[in-house]
Amino acid sequence: MYIVLNKDRMVIEKEQDVVPYRNRVKEFAVKIGMSLVNQTKLITAASELVRNMLKYANGGVTTIEVISKGRENGIRLVFADKGPGIADLNLAMKDGFSTGKSLGLGLPGAKRLSSEFDIQSTVGKGTTVTIIKWKNG
């Protein structure tokens, strides 16, 4: 299992929260010495997911953690909302599918940019997305 080394929590409720949130994720990634390309991938994935949360659930709570597994360090981000939930996760994970007026790249794109990706959703209760980006992953 993972050992959590450092943890922070942020509430996202308006679009102006996106940029400070991205900066916070960047601080964590820089602290563990993640390469610039991986940092950029992580922050882009985070940006997609945080926007999804705002758009479909009017916001939610995010946690940023530094975790370690053996000798590898990484960043784990959790996005939890109490929105409408996703009825068909397989469909939501498909490129180009969107119930909103967007490009439909958010979820599948974030998955491609992450080392590990997990999504749990219950209709009427909300959605929780967890991603991990390993320092060298």
């Binding site: 390309v37 950029t40 882009t44 997609e48 490129d95 490009l103 599948p108 794109g109 491609r112 940019l113």
Partner: peptide, 14 residues
């Protein structure tokens, strides 16, 4: 465009 941004954009699918 920064190189890291270009790499990320393509992986994102944009």
């Amino acid at each position: 465009m920064q190189p890291a941004v270009a790499i990320t954009l393509i992986e994102l699918g944009l």
